[in-house]
Amino acid sequence: MDAIRTEDLTKHYRVGFWRPRPYIALDRLSLTVRTGEVFGFLGPNGAGKTTTLKLLMQLMYPSSGRAEILGRPVGDVEVRRRIGYLPENPYFYDYLTAEELLEYFAGLFGYPAAERRRRAASLLDTVGIGAERRLQLRKFSKGMIQRVGIAQALINDPDVVFFDEPMSGLDPLGRREIRQLILQLRDRGCTVFFSSHVLADAEALCSRVAIVAAGRLVASGQLSELLAFQVRGWELVMSGVTPDALSQARADREIVNAVPIDGQRFAMELPASAAPERVLATLTASGAQLVSLTPIRETLEDFFMRQVTGAQRSSNG
């Protein structure tokens, strides 16, 4: 059984008050997420990611098409018992403390009082705000609210979780913690469906991704298989590079460009055809030391730009 399945899911509505015109927020989206996988739902802002999640949560009703979670239609209340959802930029009742909020949500699942307290306490520890559990939410920072949001999505030990931009508002340390949390969820057999506009998150976590732009599915599959994201070259930074070694490497066409940073430290660009291991070995043998080696890829943003302009071109033509 698939965790999530949509078939031609479409949402359009009218925008503008005086002269309403139709706006297609999501156009015939069909995708399948398998049980137990971490699935990245990628796209620039306004691509239809949040709309898709709202349709899956029945915060909106589709104009046409179908959606199922765990083999049941999305409207089914039984489905809600087995899922968790973190909205984009979440907001919660600011008159409650973090603990009270989680206990309130736990109560909606019908857990007895002791169980509510236990779950609230353990989840607040998990997301790293155990110390602030008695603080009213009005005093929380954006990053802390984001953590509360993740905790509430997990209150019922869900089988499928939906995270809308889970990394937003978090500092680099926080992002790493959330990445680890998502991997832990995966290890427990939980399916994770998350949306992001940051490619690095997807690379670090996902088995598969889908990419949407302007309301349409542009590509889906394993990230490494998506041609657009294959390595276009490398950036090699080394110190103690001698001019001889550098000109030799240029002569061998193993580097296309070299920019001096300071003294004998150089940032060198390697073409995709080059084997970085051999260049590295040659230069190391000449006495240079490795500073960093980074693959150069098309970024998600570049990809989106191309797709969006392509989509516009096709809709104009």
Binding site: K54, M57, Q58, L59, V77, E78, R80, R81, I83, G84, Y85, L86, P87, N89, P90, Y91, F92, Y93, F105, L108, F109, G110, G149, Q152, A153, N156, F162
Partner: peptide, 12 residues
């Protein structure tokens, strides 16, 4: 304030 989003994703 969108607090309803997380609320309605619960069995409510």
């Amino acid at each position: 304030r969108r607090s309803i989003y997380s609320l309605l994703s619960k069995p409510l």
